[in-house]
Design a binder for these strands. Structure first.
Length: 382
DNA sequence: AAGCCGGGGTC
DNA sequence: GACCCAGGCTT
């Protein structure tokens, strides 16, 4: 390579570096000026920041805020969380979804308490070893709580970087994610990496949005390759997702003097660790009876249909027929034999202190003795 | 690499 | 309805 060419190459590399340094200054400046005031941005406590990041996995900021506040109030530090009962953790998590996160959160707290002396490690590689902490959360905690120059990629960052660099790959594919991550790692600055990462996410959430990006007010529009090509609405490219199948279910709400029959689901699967009125896959009440008996619903229970509940999940649409019965006594409960359940109990309607899904709450509400208007509505639909 | 795992806001 | 959100784990 000639001396002259070498200098040119070096010169271009220097130009790129200068452009990226400018980009970092611009974006961080914008972030300082226009960042939303979010609860977890008022603390430097790694525990609180970690808690917020786990709650924010696949979950919107507005949804998380009240859960974050309640959680932090009940469990002010990692040891408090580590020593809690899992049922109480799930209780505070109820309604937030993806309940495995709550179990992993609890286990992670126990790992930090027992193996790290109650102190979160600062390096992403160490954080990554803990339960429930993947590449994103490791980068987030390391950069935001510890000012380490760790990269991070979430849905927002993937979209922003795909547009900024006009990346053609499917951003959900392995190859696409690998490319996005390499860009993220190249761009993360030594100075204020936490502000940089949060700025990328903030930009994606408020300006560089999926549908109608507000390029006219974007602080980095002049550096955006997609915009330069007029393709900001075509990028990023995302693969097709398939429709979720419908699943017919039957639930039985059994009551005796204000106590309700609840079953606890085994950990691991759908709604793992949560309590609910017994609920089985079946088309009709008659078909459901054998499985319901295996979930504690005694033969003597006279079941009547009281309504239907629909519930949409990521990969399934549940259509639940709700049955109701008055038990003449609190009959003794044995170990359930129906698949998803591990334990039975008579509980108050609210099932205080344990985890209950939104679906279960909808089923309980549907079985509640009705006011006249609601009753007519159900009959009209049937 | 693909599937599983909630719930809800927005267009 | 469709989209997708401060993803991670399992197979």
């Amino acid at each position: 390579m000639s001396k002259r060419l070498k200098q040119t190459t070096k010169g271009r590399a220097a130009d790129v570096a200068a452009r990226e340094a400018t980009l970092a200054v611009e974006l961080k400046g914008w972030f300082r000026k226009s960042a939303r005031d979010l609860p977890w941005r008022r603390t430097r406590d790694p525990y609180a920041i970690w808690l917020s990041e786990v709650m924010l996995q696949q979950t919107r900021v507005e949804t998380v805020i009240p859960y974050y506040e309640r959680f932090l109030q009940r469990f002010p530090d990692v040891r408090a969380l580590a020593s809690a009962e899992i049922d109480e953790v799930l209780s505070l998590w109820s309604g937030l979804g993806y309940y495995r996160r709550a179990r992993e959160l609890h286990r992670c707290a126990q790992e930090v308490a027992s193996m790290h002396g109650g102190v979160f490690p600062a390096e992403a590689a160490e954080l990554r070893k803990l339960r429930g902490i993947g590449p994103y959360t490791a980068g987030a905690v390391s950069s935001i709580a510890f000012d380490r120059p760790a990269a991070l990629v979430d849905g927002n960052v993937a979209r922003v970087l795909a547009r900024l660099e006009a990346i053609e790959d499917d951003v959900k594919s392995t190859a696409g994610l690998k490319r996005i991550w390499s860009v993220a790692e190249r761009l993360v600055p030594r100075e204020e990496p936490g502000a940089w990462n949060q700025a990328l996410m903030e930009l994606g959430a408020t300006i560089c949005t999926p549908q109608n990006p507000a390029c006219l007010i974007c602080p980095v529009r002049d550096a955006c390759a997609a915009r330069a090509q007029g393709r900001e609405r075509e990028l990023p490219i995302v693969g097709e997702k398939r429709a979720s199948p419908r699943v017919a279910m039957v639930a039985a709400v059994v009551e005796h003097e204000g106590r309700f029959l609840f079953a606890r689901r085994k950990e691991g699967g759908l709604f793992g660790g949560l309590w609910e009125p017994p609920m089985v896959e079946a088309q009709t009440a008659e078909d459901a009876k054998p499985s319901l008996r295996g979930a504690g619903v005694a033969v003597e229970a006279k079941l009547t249909e009281v309504g239907r509940v629909e519930h949409v999940l990521t990969h399934r649409e549940l259509d639940v027929l709700v049955l109701r019965a008055r038990a003449d006594r609190l009959w003794p409960l044995e170990a359930p034999t129906t698949a998803p359940y591990e334990r039975l109990a008579w509980m108050e309607r609210g099932a205080e202190g344990v985890g209950v899904s939104t679906l279960a709450r909808k089923i309980l509400a549907a079985a509640k003795p009705e006011k006249k208007g609601a009753t007519r509505k159900k009959k009209a639909r049937a």
